[in-house]
Every structure is written in C-alpha cells, then in structure tokens.
Design a protein around this nucleic acid. Structure first.
Lengths: 231, 231
DNA sequence: TCGTTAATATCGTTG
DNA sequence: CAACGATGTTAACGA
C-alpha cells in the first residue's frame, strides 16, 4: 500500500473518456496494482480509478507537459483491456508506503437472506393459518422467494425485499404469470413483503392485486432465538 | 484530508450490522468528516465507511478492549441517522494530514447521454426513412429516450442503454403501454437499442414484439464530426 | 426535497 | 466464465 498526496491532473480512457483538471488529491496504490484517486469530500467512490490487473509505469513528461509544470507522468495500464489512466504529477506533498498483509474481510448480518429465513419461520405473519410450502421455489425464470398456502389452501407467492421498489413488483408479476399456468397451484396470489415499501411500488402492486406486507426486522429477529445471531 | 495506517478492528451498525476483525488497514478521514476503511486489494469500494454528515470522536478504550491491545477507540456517528462506526485502534504506523482544497471534478464523455445524442443525429440506423420526432419525449411515467417515425409514418419508441438488461425491457414496456393509449401516436412500436444486449433481455424483448438494435458507439462517433469531441 | 435513472457501478452466487 | 440479483449501492438530473 502506497499513499501519495500530490497536485495532479488525470485522464482516463477505456469504456469512456474522462478528465480531471489539476488539483491536489490522494493517490492510493494498492498491493494488487490497482489505483484510486480521491478528493477531500463526496462518498466512498473515488474520482477516478483503475482496477487490477494493471501496472503502473513512471516516465518523464514530454516538453508540453513540462511547460504545464508536470514533473512525472504515471501511466496505469490495464493488462486485459485497453483501459488506461494517465496521471500528470505536478508536485508531491506526501508519499508513504506500508505493508498491510492479508485482510480477513467483512462479516455481515441483516441482509435479505436473513429476512427470508425469518419470514419462512414466522410465515403466520402473512395471516393466520398460513403454512410454508418451501423457500426458493423454482420456476423457469428463477426461484420465488417463498411459496406458501393460506388457511383455505390457496397458493401464495411471496417476493421479499429489504426495500420494496417497482422492480420487485415487476419480478413478482413475472413469477405470478408463470405460476398461474400451473394447474396444481392455480390460482396463485402474490404478496410483496419488505422492510420498507416505496409509494410507487405499493400503487403498482395493489393495482395488480398484489398484497403489500411491511416487515419489522427487529421484531422478527426478537422472536427468533437470540443465540443464532452473529454478534 | 488525514491518512492513517493502523492495525484496527471495526464494527458498523446501521442499515446492517458488520464487523471487521483486527488487521492493518488504511483509514481515510475526509474534510467533510466522512471516513473510509481500505485494505490492500479489491476494487474501489472500501471495506467499510461512514458518509457525511458525521463526526469522529476519540476516546479511551474500556478495560476489556485494553486487554485486547486497543489503545484508542474512534467513534464515527452519523448526525442524521443512527449509523455508527466504531474503530478499535491497536497500533498506528503512519498518520499524515494535508489540506487538499476544492476539486473541480470529473469531465466525462461516452455515457448514455452521448449514445442518445448520436442516435438522434443518425436516426436512420433504425432503418431507412426513419425521422426523429424528439428526444426525451415526455410521458406520465417519465421521458422516453427517443420518439421517431418510420418510413410509413408509424410511431417508434426507442429505449437506449449502454448495456441492455431485463430492467430496460420492462421500462420500455411500461412506456409502450402508455404511448399506445394515445390515439395520435397509436400504434407505437418499440426498439431496444444498446451497445450490448444480454440474452435474457433479448428473449424478453422479442417475446413482446420489441426490436433489438445493437449500437456501435465508436462507429457512430466516427460518423460524427471529430471537432465536436471533448478530448 | 423527493423521485427516477444511470454507472468505468461493485459484489456475491449460481448454473 | 457468464449472467443475474442485491447493494449501508452512489451520483446525476428533474419535478
């Protein structure tokens, strides 16, 4: 890992062409050769970058560049594609290098898979008498999150999202169209279940006869065995 | 901008709960208070982060943490939500601070907007005799990228993507449903135009009577006046 | 501010 | 390897 703070201009060409006018920025060169160029604000996305596999070469600037104050030209070339980053370094304010070693990586909790697991266990949240048929019920265009039966024995297909948006309703609609061709399941009702359902998604769902259910993750997890949690 | 290289463990809680076991990493603290935690590989996405507005507070570790070798506890708290990052710092290897100043930002060329611009200029790529009605043709659910007429005077709605995936077909389908309610336009045919069209998207589009057109950006740009390019 | 759409998206999982 | 869905997506652009 090498961290450089420098006044520089950057040109990228590859899937698109982009240019960063001269300014002071952070250049992060990782062990795998990848380069990130950060400014002093915004979110985690760099202004520009080159991902591995790639190689950094330092060369002398040509005369035109030297007249603009450029002292070094860094060229980062992707080894598989023709993506290329050219960094014109004007002045280096700081240059630090350090071995970081291997990183054990991130452990996560609280994603959609967990919601699905909890709803499968607590399927009565959809209504009294509901029973689980199976999770990830397969169809020709992909698995439905949950297939269940209501108290009257009718089929219920459930699409689960953390945030319910219009795409999720479209997805469930495609599943329902397919499932309703199966004489053993027909008629299949749809349930759109999410921690949060956007107004537009709710309107579309209800317009198509799909029921919306808002899930309370904390409450569902509270019902769940406390020992099974990661932290 | 402050760059710290330190051995540390990190816990995040907010929209999810996540934990980073102890290892040596880069901590980037930006002028707006945001914090990024990077390791020595992967892509531009940090292992963990906190975005502005947030505040960093340094405190003494409790006894349990001190026994694990923690020398400082950094707490980064989001000021609007209850997102929180806790960094247990064990050892600091490097700590650099530098004023970066304002960044003029990135200038881009070659994104979807340019594809749309070029296709509007070269509308005959859809077939001889096609004429442009307008770009960004407004509908109740958002603007259609391009509305055109074919040689017979029939309406053609075009959705443009760099990469054509299933979502784009759904999007165009929604537009077509609406446009076909307009007696002045009806019947409206659909064209899905992209630099690259995924097989599933093509199958869905053609199943719905939508024509797929693959665009060659470089060729289209080559036809375009070379002077109009940014770089 | 909210909502929608694009992105050099990135990232994990699956076939 | 390709394709698909989720992401603490982020970022840009309008209404």
């Amino acid at each position: 890992m090498r961290l450089v703070i420098a006044h520089c201009a950057v040109r990228y060409s590859g899937r698109l062409v982009a240019y960063l006018p001269p300014a002071t920025r952070v250049l992060m060169i990782k062990a795998d050769g990848s380069v990130l160029i950060h400014n002093d604000g915004g979110s985690y996305k760099p202004l520009n970058w080159m991902m591995a596999p790639c190689q950094l070469a330092v060369s002398e600037p040509d005369e035109g560049a030297r007249e603009r104050g450029v002292t070094e030209l860094w060229t980062v070339q992707n080894q598989k594609t023709d993506d290329r980053l050219e960094i014109e370094v004007v002045e280096v304010f700081s240059d630090v290098q350090q071995e970081l070693g291997h990183d054990p990586g991130l452990v996560k909790d609280g994603v959609e898979a967990h919601l699905q697991e909890l709803l499968a266990e607590q399927i009565a949240l959809l209504g009294n008498g509901h029973t689980l048929v199976r999770r990830e019920y397969p169809t020709a265009i992909g698995p439905v999150d949950i297939l269940a039966r209501d108290s009257a024995g009718g089929s219920v297909a459930v699409e689960i999202k953390r945030r319910g948006e219009i795409d999720g309703v479209e997805q469930l609609t495609r599943y329902l169209e397919l499932l309703n061709r199966d004489p053993l399941l027909r008629p299949v009702r749809g349930v759109f279940a999410a921690q949060e359902i956007k107004p537009q998604a709710r309107v579309l769902a209800e317009d198509r006869g799909i029921r919306c259910v808002v899930l309370d993750y904390d409450a569902m997890r509270g019902v769940d065995d406390a020992d099974s949690r990661l932290f």
